[in-house]
């Protein structure tokens, strides 16, 4: 009797484990965000001082290099003229402010979790009616030049081509918000 009971219990246990075993189920795979591909949250030494997430440092380097290209481009420089305005010694320069805020924006847009962007949304920011600092509406040509400048900034920082393509694709998703003509 006891042996029968034992066999019955073993049989039920086998059935239970077999039923739970689902070979068809694939393990959950999540694709890395662009921020993670650029180094993610790994802490590295910041050349400007202290420690910084590698993803943010990479994006800041791209942003900084892009700003030089933008300011040297006659098509784009009118939109960014105040970058070149001198500030008094001791004041934070417009270059530093733009670099910080644009880096925040790129960090959030590429999937960073430890940073926030609290500037205007892209539609309001590029609408002269809502943003008095935007003198004129952006054109497709200017936005093309902007994307090209970011791509050149990324190339100067040896960002792999496929990631530059992803950055370009990300910027393309914002075209309708930025170019309002």
């Amino acid at each position: 009797m006891n042996t029968r009971l034992l066999i019955l219990l073993l049989g039920m246990a086998c059935l239970t484990f077999t039923a739970c075993d689902n070979d068809d189920e694939e393990p959950m795979m999540t694709e890395d965000t662009l921020y993670q591909k650029l180094g993610g949250t790994t802490m590295v030494t910041d050349p400007a001082g202290g420690m910084i997430e590698q993803g943010r440092l990479g994006l800041r380097s791209v942003v900084d290099s892009s700003i030089f290209v933008i300011a040297a481009d006659p098509v784009l420089s009118p939109y960014f003229a105040s970058l070149l305005a001198e500030v008094g010694n001791g004041n934070t320069t417009n270059l530093a402010i733009l670099s910080e805020n644009l880096t925040d924006f790129f960090c959030v847009a590429t999937g960073a979790e430890n940073y926030t962007y609290d500037g205007m949304d892209m539609v309001s920011a590029h609408d002269p009616a809502q943003n008095p600092r935007m003198e004129q509406k952006s054109t497709d040509a200017a936005y093309d030049a902007f994307i090209a400048a970011v791509a050149e900034g990324a190339m100067q920082n040896n960002v792999p081509e496929e990631l530059i393509g992803e950055v370009g694709a990300l910027l393309e998703t914002l075209r309708a918000d930025v170019v309002q003509q």
Partner: peptide, 23 residues
């Protein structure tokens, strides 16, 4: 040297954070 005009100084890339309601 490129000189920035007074009107140009008043405009810039809008990613300044100045529009944030919190700020």
């Amino acid at each position: 040297l490129y000189q920035v005009s007074e009107s140009a100084k008043a405009s810039s890339c809008p990613v300044t954070g100045a529009g944030s309601p919190v700020k």
